[in-house]
Simulated assay, not measured.
Amino acid sequence: MPAPVVLVSGTEDLLAERAVDRVVTLSREQDPQIEVVRLDAADYAAGMLGVSTSPSLFAEDKVVVVTGLERAPDELLSDVLAYLPAPAPGVVLVLRHGGGQRGKKLLDTLRAQAVPTVACDAVKSDADKASFVTAELRRAGRRPDGQAVRALVDAVGSDLRELAAACAQLAADTTGVIGPEVVERYYGGRIEATGFRVADAAVAGDAGQAVSLLRHALATGVDPVPVVAALAAKLRTIAKVAAVRSRGSAAVRELGLAPWQVDRAMADLRRWTPEGLATAIGAVAQADAEVKGEGRDPRFAVERAVLRVAAASGR
Rank of each mutant, 00 (worst) to 15 (best):
R111Y: 04
P73L: 13
A287V: 06
A219S: 12
A232P: 08
A86V: 10
A165R: 14
A42F: 00
R102C: 10
L93E: 03
V177N: 14
Q113C: 10
M48Y: 02
A201I: 03
G157I: 02
G157F: 01
P4Y: 05
A172I: 01
D173T: 15
L257G: 04
R185K: 11
V302K: 00
P259K: 03
V133D: 15
A165M: 10
D61K: 15
A164I: 00
K62I: 08
A278D: 03
M266R: 11
G100H: 09
L57P: 10
P144F: 09
A41I: 09
S27M: 12
V65C: 08
T194A: 12
V92A: 13
A232W: 11
R215L: 07
Y44Q: 05
G256L: 02
R308I: 05
A219W: 06
A41P: 13
L15A: 14
L107S: 13
A199G: 10
G50C: 04
G47F: 02
R38F: 00
G205R: 03
T25I: 05
E254Q: 15
S313L: 12
D126Y: 02
F132D: 02
A140F: 10
V37A: 01
P85N: 11
V306E: 15
Y83S: 06
D297R: 00
L57M: 14
R142W: 12
Q113D: 12
E290G: 01
A46I: 05
L160P: 09
R190E: 04
G208Y: 02
P274W: 14
G176P: 15
I34W: 00
V20C: 07
G176T: 05
